[in-house]
């Protein structure tokens, strides 16, 4: 287990920030940490990195306590923090070489070029960081996080400031790191598309508590919100009133019918049964009930409570 965090509590200036946070991340896994602003995600990351000491609970990172062995933990962890600054007077290559030296890693020009190429960063010769665009700076931050050749990557909003192509490239880099190199990635983001594409497991935090943790597809399927579909029929449905269990038709909009499928029901199975019952289905389109609905329903419920 790369991160094992159990029932962590933390107060800052006598105000509770983390009330009960648990999180576990294994090798080669990409974990999405979600939650509204102020939910405590960045504080959770600070605790994982040993920057803040929890009042209660257990934290183990790479099998070590980050408060007791911060140097050993930091040697194997790459981090892209939320507030990510650079030395504007340096070039990107000098900047990465500076960090490579601190980590005791190769820092020759060839190694730095390879690192920049890995994240798709191609500055002009001698270009100072101060003149980088936001997207270039974000890629440089990611390259810096990769300098230690980490076993664990902690990324806070890694695709901020990137265009869609840039985002896709960074996704590919992260997928390769996790699948080919076994790097565990803790991804903290508000971009649910990123989570949908990258993460196998997610955790949702609300007001300093972990309210949901588990496999992404299982969570979407199991019990948190019904999936909504738009079903197009060639003609009117049969008079037979039988329906597969777990499927309810809400209304019709011309040839389109709106259907909710319970989390316990496999949608593909439901469509097969409907076809068997004589429903002239032409097309089925997902209309919601995915990660976004799951996120919204959980955060709304908890905030209201």
């Amino acid at each position: 287990m790369l991160i094992d965090m159990q029932h962590v509590q933390l107060s800052l200036n006598d105000a509770p920030v983390l009330r009960d946070v648990s999180l576990s991340l294994g090798e080669g896994e990409i974990y999405g940490l979600l939650g509204p602003n102020g939910a405590g995600k960045s504080t959770t990351i600070a605790v994982v990195l040993g920057l803040l000491s929890p009042d209660a609970g257990q934290v183990q990172v790479l099998g070590q306590d980050p408060l007791v062995q911060p140097v050993a933990v930091h040697r194997q962890v790459g981090v892209l923090p939320e507030q990510n600054g650079f030395y504007g007077w340096m070039t990107g290559s000098d900047y990465l070489a500076f960090f490579a030296r601190l980590y005791g890693r190769p820092h020759d020009a060839e190694a730095m070029r390879a690192l920049m190429a890995q994240v798709g960063l191609a500055p002009r010769d001698g270009q100072r960081i101060a003149t980088y665009s936001r997207g270039m700076a974000q890629r440089l931050g990611l390259a810096r996080a990769l300098v230690p050749q980490p076993r664990l990557l902690i990324l806070d909003e890694p695709t901020n400031g990137l265009d869609p192509r840039g985002r896709r490239e960074i996704h590919d880099v992260l997928i390769e790191l996790s699948t080919r190199h076994g790097v565990g990635i803790l991804l903290c983001t508000h971009l649910l598309d990123d989570v949908d594409r990258l993460c196998q497991r997610i955790g949702i935090m609300v007001e300093g508590r972990s309210v949901v943790e588990g496999g992404l597809s299982e969570l979407i399927r199991s019990g948190h919100s019904a999936a909504r579909f738009r079903v197009r029929l060639r003609e009117a449905p049969p008079a037979d009133t039988r329906r597969p269990t777990g499927v309810s038709f809400i209304r019709s909009e011309g040839e389109w019918w709106i259907a909710d499928v319970d989390p316990s029901t496999q949608p593909e199975q439901a469509w097969r049964e409907l076809l068997f019952l004589g429903w002239p289905i032409v097309e089925v389109v997902r209309a919601g009930g995915g990660l976004e609905d799951l996120y919204l329903s959980i955060t709304e419920q908890r905030t209201a409570a």
């Binding site: 990195l49 920057l51 962890v77 923090p81 990510n84 600054g85 005791g104």
Partner: peptide
């Protein structure tokens, strides 16, 4: 400027 945290996260005491 946000440059201190990356330094604190290096393997330096």
């Amino acid at each position: 400027r946000g440059t201190l945290v990356p330094l604190l996260l290096t393997p330096l005491s």
